[in-house]
Design a protein around this nucleic acid. Structure first.
Lengths: 220, 220
DNA sequence: GCGAGATCAGGAGAAGTTCCCAGCGCAAGT
DNA sequence: ACTTGCGCTGGGAACTTCTCCTGATCTCGC
């Protein structure tokens, strides 16, 4: 049996290099490609479909979610593992909705990454312990955020709007028409009872959709 | 000559493992310790002072800055390299103030990390290209709080806008015409180089104009 | 006094918003 | 398989808002 091929998607070159070393120490695992953006990931997968795609969610421009969708669009059977620092449950849920087969946070021990890759390669779903714990808490407490009124795409666009991107930039990042973004923008405000874009930012912050920054121009 | 010893500080086990592999591929470099928190880093350094400490800024609880200060407190000659995903200049400045000898972002190529370690080991200071660029821009433009460009009335209106009030509500609250508020709104965005209302919120937050709230729909 | 700058507001055209609608794809039910 | 429903995607038209220009006060400092 030949090696399990893996495509790494992360915008940090050093991080990619680190994972590559880590993964290739495992016998039977081989990293056959790297990509540093959504577009590059898509092209790399088309050129050489790997058995497993390991993708980071936080990438400049369009998000890792978009990369997941793009890859799933060309190959419904693509097995994608999200490997990110985001420990928020909402990120994990969105990743699965986008078509991910697994979600492992960088807080997990190295073995968890390897194990998740193996699980996914075998056709299963993998979730790291911390996320599993959050899911349990969420289920038991039954708390709901205002975002539940929104579809996954709406949530994603809300995040981009709240982060300060213009309509054009969002349309470009998601490869949609400006008109569609405008319609989403309008619909999201209606669903959240937000009369103002500033209100949208607060809702997004409350929902944990945005990372707070100590300084700078806010999430961009 | 014996190997250069390195202490890795990062709260993500997988990330540490990756760096370790990456660094140890270089002849003459040896990772002699790992730590996943400020406290652990401090203890590890006391037990076995490494030639170089590589530390991530973003750690839960107390920040990586605190780890830098603690280590410098026990050994003024400690050589500390910050290696983080934060590309904001303010982070870098704070790191150097805390006593770091270098600052490399994870956006840098892997060679940059190795090179920075070598530079610091030789007694120098190291900064990755992106941060160096930001410093240059900052110096040339002469940095100041963005709010300094605004008059008191503009600041007041900015605060109300960012808190989520509509134009009508603000006009009513200040006994001004809606038209005036619109004009201020427009002028404020221009002065702050904000293309979006969401951007305005972030500027206001950064300037300390608004208090953050854990939950509840934001300042209203 | 008198210019500089902040405050306040109107108008016209550009730009964005809102609402309505329609096609598409997917999943679930019959 | 067919239908039904829902989420995603965007066009059109009317409406509202924004932007830029302009001008009016008012205060402050010289």
């Amino acid at each position: 049996m030949s090696d399990l091929t893996i495509l790494l998607v992360d915008d940090h070159p050093v991080v990619r290099a680190g994972y590559r070393k880590l993964i290739e120490l495992q016998p039977g695992y081989r990293v056959t490609g790297e990509a540093d953006s959504t577009a590059a990931a898509y092209l790399a997968y088309r050129r050489e479909p790997a058995d497993i795609v390991v993708v980071d969610l936080s990438m400049p421009g369009s998000s890792g979610l978009e990369a997941i969708r793009r890859i799933r669009a060309v190959d419904r059977k693509a097995r994608i593992l999200v490997f990110t620092m985001h420990e928020g449950l909402s990120y994990a849920l969105k990743a699965f909705e986008a078509g991910a087969a697994g979600y492992v946070t960088k807080s997990s021990p190295p073995e968890a990454l390897i194990a998740a890759i193996a699980t996914i390669a075998a056709g299963g779903k993998a979730v790291s312990d911390d996320i599993a714990h959050e899911i349990a808490v969420e289920r038991l407490s039954g708390r709901k955020s205002p975002l539940e009124a929104l579809g996954p795409r709406e949530v994603e666009i809300l995040q981009l709007i709240a982060s300060g991107m213009t309509t054009d930039e969002i349309a470009d990042a998601l490869s949609l028409s400006q008109k569609t973004i405008q319609n989403y923008h309008s619909g999201i405000k209606a669903k959240l009872n937000a009369r103002t874009d500033a209100n949208l930012v607060w809702v997004a912050i409350d929902a944990g959709l945005l990372e707070m920054r100590a300084a700078g121009g806010g999430p961009a």
